[in-house]
Amino acid sequence: MRITVLGGCGAWPVPDQGCSGYLVEHGGFRLLIDPGYGTFQALLRTTAAERVDAVLVSHGHPDHCADLNPLLRARALGPDPCAPLPVHSLPGALGPVLALDSPHMLATAYRLAEFTAGHRFAIGPFTVDARCTPHFVPNAAVRLAAGGSTLVYTGDSGPSPQLDALAAGADVLLAEATFVERVVPDSDSPHLSTAWQAGRCATRTAVGRLVLTHLWPGTDRSAARSAARREYRGAIDVAEPGLTIEPG
């Protein structure tokens, strides 16, 4: 399994990187997870639009799915016809982004495959387990397994026993860390996480490596890493474009 970060900024893109976006590859299969604002150009620096084999979206906020639109446009309107792209999401999550164009324009570009959190399913060579975790809209944290390696991605999530159960023993935990030590405002604390909380989760679940992502624009990356380090002694990365990890 090979994980390439396309973007790791929360809420909106900044000049040096887009929002959430991750390319996960195994056995020649390319799975794009969360094509958020500003990630399509980063994807094109890694592979061609027509070489993406499937998409998985954690939830419907645009910083996690807005660039599904240019990806589908490139596949539908480009010179080489593409097979419909399987797009996996929770029910109804992608309605707004899929409605950006007239239905007939992208009708042959994708095949929507909605899943229910709590069930196991397959995407190419990946076995996927999904759990609902707390956020402002329905969010699916996912555990991907292939070739003896495991990746757990939180999407956007507050602390949750469901997340702890999903992450147990994973090789890599790709964890939302919007804030460094304290969620602001306090009323949002059930729905978002900090780098410090991500470190605690990584220790509780004995993961092999922690990758902090979805940092609020302008956050000091070294401060986020230091907050996580107080709770977790394993390897820690902060997601930024081009970061590549091969678990195991």
Rank of each mutant, 00 (worst) to 15 (best):
V97Q: 13
A195G: 01
A117F: 12
A177E: 03
V238H: 02
A42W: 01
D188E: 10
P13N: 09
L94F: 07
R230C: 11
T4M: 00
T133C: 07
D63C: 13
L23S: 07
A167L: 01
A146E: 07
P125R: 00
G8M: 09
G147I: 09
V97R: 11
C65V: 14
L151D: 02
L163R: 03
S187N: 04
A54Q: 09
S189W: 03
N69P: 00
G95F: 06
A223V: 07
L72W: 08
R209C: 12
A145S: 15
A167W: 01
R209V: 01
A99I: 07
H214E: 15
V128A: 06
Q162M: 00
G28Q: 08
A140H: 05
T213E: 03
L94K: 14
R229A: 15
R73P: 00
F40M: 03
G155C: 08
S58F: 06
T127N: 07
A165L: 11
E246A: 14
P86L: 08
P247N: 04
T127L: 10
L56V: 14
V55C: 06
P86C: 02
A235D: 11
C82Y: 00
L68T: 12
S226M: 14
R209Y: 01
R111L: 09
E114A: 10
A227E: 02
E246L: 00
D164S: 15
S149W: 09
H104L: 10
P62R: 12
R51G: 00
G60S: 13
R131A: 15
Q197I: 01
T39H: 05
A117Y: 08
L98H: 13
D80I: 12
G199H: 03
T213G: 04
D53F: 04
L163G: 06
G8S: 13
P185H: 05
T150M: 06
L94A: 03
L166H: 00
L243Q: 04
V207T: 12
P125Y: 03
P81G: 09
F179P: 00
L56E: 13
A49S: 06
F179H: 05
C132N: 10
G234T: 10
A198S: 15
G118K: 09
L192N: 07
S157Q: 06
R204T: 13
R111K: 14
G158L: 02
A228H: 12
A54T: 10
V207A: 08
E246K: 07
R120I: 11
D53H: 15
I3T: 07
A140W: 08
A223T: 03
F121H: 13
C19V: 09
F40V: 09
T46M: 04
D53E: 05
Q41I: 04
T47R: 05
T194L: 07
S189C: 01
P81V: 00
E181N: 08
L31R: 06
